[in-house]
């Protein structure tokens, strides 16, 4: 296992982030003092990093104003994550067996391929209007499911199809039945691909949930939060929410990569 990430890389990464924040600050400050104005963009309305940080700190937890309760960013993150996990579990339970079937059996592949090929080209966002009207509850979870299930299916299919036929031969000569070939050879071979599919799917699902929450009605969720803050002209909170979406997405990705490294030790 080659490790290309050390102290030096870490410092470069941090520096680049710091530089980006400085650039952000300078750009907005210049725009606000009418020294530099970008065409077509009202840069001066964008909050500075400091304003964004203050807004983030100020809206991190739930607050009460008389009769009005506002959820904090932590509540919104929790709600969005729960939807992604719920949608993800359904996508996993349906996607992996489907992928194995399509990858392993020509018949299943021929039956399901047309459906998969058409439906997977319908982006999760395109389902939102329909989901609004046909789902009494769980519309946003459905959107996540649509976003996640195809990366999982396709990666599973890929993993299954990349099974070394010699491994199947070896298993057969060692006495494995057809079912055992699937459970003991095909699935383990596809496992890293399945996890990769899950990772890609989570990325898509995360984006989809945020989009879905902007339209599908629930009082809590990051997408809803951003939209609400936009309605109130509170751009700093809005940008803070956007950054939280990015950071949470990044953390999810890293978490799965780490789990992958920890549990899939046979791949070098």
């Amino acid at each position: 296992m080659k490790k290309g990430y050390g102290r030096k890389e870490f410092i470069i990464n941090i520096l680049s982030l710091v530089l980006l924040v400085i650039l952000w600050h300078v750009l907005i400050t210049l725009a606000r003092n009418d020294i530099f104005n970008a065409p077509f963009i009202r840069l001066k309305d964008v909050p500075t990093p400091l304003e964004t940080m203050n807004a983030f700190a100020g809206s991190l937890f739930a607050q009460t104003y008389g009769p009005a309760l506002t959820y904090g960013i932590v509540d919104h993150v929790q709600a969005s994550l729960e939807r992604v996990i719920q949608g993800g579990i359904i996508a996993f339970i349906i996607g992996v067996p489907t992928g194995i079937g399509v990858g392993y059996s020509k018949l299943i592949s021929n039956i399901l391929n047309p459906v998969i090929e058409i439906v997977r080209n319908m982006p999760p966002m395109a389902w939102i209007p329909l989901a609004i009207f046909i789902f009494v509850a769980g519309g946003s979870i459905f959107i996540v499911f649509i976003g996640m299930v195809f990366p999982i299916i396709l990666n599973t299919v890929h993993g299954v199809r990349s099974t070394d036929v010699r491994l199947i031969d070896a298993a057969k000569t060692l006495g494995a039945s057809e079912a055992q070939v699937v459970t003991k050879v095909v699935i383990p071979t596809a496992f890293p691909s399945i996890i990769a599919g899950l990772r890609i799917g989570l990325g898509v699902g995360w984006m989809a949930i945020v989009a879905a929450e902007m339209v599908i009605r629930s009082p809590v969720g990051l997408g809803y939060f951003i939209w609400n803050m936009g309605d109130l002209g509170r751009y700093a909170e809005m940008v803070a929410g956007m950054l939280v979406i990015g950071v949470v997405g990044y953390i999810m990705n890293i978490t799965i990569l780490l789990l992958q490294k920890r549990f899939i030790r046979w791949v070098d």
């Binding site: 010699r166 491994l167 031969d169 070896a170 298993a171 003991k184 050879v185 383990p188 496992f191 899939i264």
Partner: peptide, 9 residues
């Protein structure tokens, strides 16, 4: 087998 063909997992 020539290339061992062990189960890598």
């Amino acid at each position: 087998f020539q290339e061992y063909v062990l189960f890598p997992w």
